[in-house]
Simulated assay, not measured.
Amino acid sequence: MGSTSSGRPAGARDRDDEGRARNARPRDGLGRPLPYGAEGVERQPEGVVRTPEQSVAEAQELLDAGKPFHAHEVFEDAWKSGPEEERTLWRGLAQLAVGLTHAARGNVTGGARLLRRGAGAVQEWASVSGRAQPYGMDLTGLAGWARTVAEDVERDAGAVDAKARAPRLLA
């Protein structure tokens, strides 16, 4: 069996220590895989347990830097490690960030769909929980932002600037 430019045997898949598939290819700022050996953006560590406030602050920094894919990973960690009653909130926030990622990549349909799905999830969570501003976030404002970006993406049928269109998480 031959080998690839990465030194892995041809056909071998990247696996973590527990045998789960993992892609070690470098990625660009929007999370798109680059060729092995290319210089990419440092990946967000996975499985980090943060306080909700740390998650919001770190995600905002990443969004402000035009890295919504990385912000999505922060929200995904909160979704997976947080309390059961907050999972819909964090999943909805992750959907908003990945929706912006797709919109920035030029995926009109996927971006708009995920932005709307995330908007619905955070609004539903706010309604059910009675908490419209958890951890200082303005969920009504975020849902409105997401729907506006979704409309703009569909109307303009092109990629958006993730940094310029980044939401403000805090009220």
Rank of each mutant, 00 (worst) to 15 (best):
A38P: 09
R147D: 13
A65R: 14
R43Q: 13
L30C: 11
R27L: 14
E39N: 13
R113C: 04
S55C: 14
R8V: 04
P45D: 07
R131H: 03
R20V: 09
Q95H: 14
M1T: 14
V149S: 01
G7E: 10
D14Y: 05
E151W: 03
A71Q: 06
A103L: 11
S127I: 00
E76F: 01
V98H: 04
G31H: 07
V41H: 12
L114W: 06
D17P: 06
D156I: 03
A119R: 00
A103F: 03
R87Y: 01
S129Y: 00
R43D: 15
H70K: 14
W90G: 00
Q95D: 15
V122D: 00
W145L: 04
D16N: 15
S81A: 13
E53G: 11
R131D: 10
Q95V: 02
A24R: 15
A97Q: 10
H102S: 11
N107I: 08
Y135K: 00
A97E: 08
A38I: 10
F69D: 12
G29Y: 11
R165P: 03
A65W: 07
A65C: 06
A94E: 04
A104C: 07
E73W: 05
F75A: 06
E151N: 12
R91N: 12
V48H: 03
R116H: 11
